[in-house]
Amino acid sequence: MSAPPSYVLRDLGTLPYRDAWALQRELHAQVVDGTTPPTLLLVEHPPVLTLGRKAREGTNIIVTRAYLEAQGIEVLEVERGGDVTYHGPGQLVAYAIFPVGRRVVDFLRLLEDATITALHTLGLDDARPNPGYAGVYVEPRAVNGHTYDQKIASFGVAVKRHVALHGLALNVTTNLAHFDLIVPCGLTDTQMTSVEREYDRRGATRTASMAEARTALADAFAATFEPYDWTLPQFAAVGS
């Protein structure tokens, strides 16, 4: 898994959310100061709920804090955009600490493009954006007469001093039952899915693998982000 020379890829393995969050903030300060190159972190977390700036705990977390504590699921308020989401084993999280300047929407589109490319590599050719929503989806599915969007990757970023942090979470072999504890991202017409579930639904003979997903996402980032110079205060196409 190699990255273009204008950014660094670090695979953290499994790390508690608080530790990865502290590392993000440390790297963010260094990228802002120009002492560290833009950095992409790949990581897997123990179970945790994070509340973005739009989160309303009484509405979109549908169980008590006591219940979550008994299940060993921490709840943290973070500075990213978006609502409430779940991180846990079997979910590949990518934190992209990159200088984006004012091109925040363009940066989000690149994150989507890289994730979609990775999912196509993993055999999910229907992976796509959903206009008006952040994230990556597969084809909607009818359940008991109601059609639900099927979300496989969630997005949430913060931009401070023109440098992004946080990023995306791709469900690979995630325990999807944990999403029943919340209204994911505050979307009531959306169900969460995973690479593993989509393989099962389609009768695929292949097995969902975190190692394979890591390679696919790292390679997709390299291909998607390579045309841009990430050493600039605001990214631009190489040679522009």
Rank of each mutant, 00 (worst) to 15 (best):
Y95V: 09
H87M: 02
P99R: 06
T59I: 11
T59M: 11
V8M: 05
L42T: 05
Y67T: 14
L40E: 02
L111K: 05
D19F: 08
E74T: 15
R18W: 13
E26H: 12
G101A: 13
I61R: 09
T36M: 12
R53P: 12
D11P: 00
P46H: 06
L41N: 01
P89R: 13
L23Q: 12
I62V: 15
L9I: 00
T36S: 11
A70H: 09
E79D: 15
R53T: 14
L23C: 03
R102P: 07
H28P: 00
V48H: 09
E79L: 03
A96R: 10
F107M: 12
G90T: 02
R109L: 11
G52D: 03
L42H: 01
R80W: 06
D106G: 04
V84I: 08
Y86R: 02
R102C: 05
G101W: 10
K54E: 09
K54G: 12
R102I: 07
F98I: 13
L92D: 00
T59W: 08
L12H: 10
A29F: 00
G81E: 11
Y67R: 15
E57H: 05
A55F: 00
G101H: 05
V100N: 11
R25Q: 14
L23W: 05
G52P: 12
R56I: 11
R25L: 13
H87V: 01
L40S: 05
E69W: 02
Q71T: 09
R10D: 07
Y17S: 04
T59S: 13
H28N: 04
R102W: 06
H28R: 12
G58D: 15
K54L: 15
P37V: 02
P99W: 04
Q30D: 14
A55M: 05
G13D: 02
Q91P: 09
V43E: 10
Y86C: 09
Q30W: 11
T59V: 13
Q91L: 01
V8P: 00
V8T: 10
V31R: 07
L42S: 04
Q71L: 15
T35S: 14
R102A: 13
G90H: 02
L41F: 09
H87F: 01
I62E: 10
A66F: 06
Q24P: 08
R10T: 09
H45P: 00
G82S: 04
L68C: 06
L68Q: 06
R10N: 07
L40W: 03
A96M: 14
P37E: 01
T64N: 07
R10A: 05
G81K: 08
L42N: 03
P5W: 09
V31W: 05
L51Q: 10
V104S: 04
K54V: 11
E26P: 05
G90A: 09
L51P: 12
G13L: 08
L111Q: 12
G82P: 09
D83M: 06
T39W: 01
V104R: 08
Q91S: 06
D33H: 14
H45I: 05
L27C: 08
D106E: 13
A55C: 04
A20V: 01
Y17N: 06
R56P: 00
V43L: 07
G88L: 07
T36G: 05
P4W: 01
Y67Q: 15
L110S: 11
A22L: 13
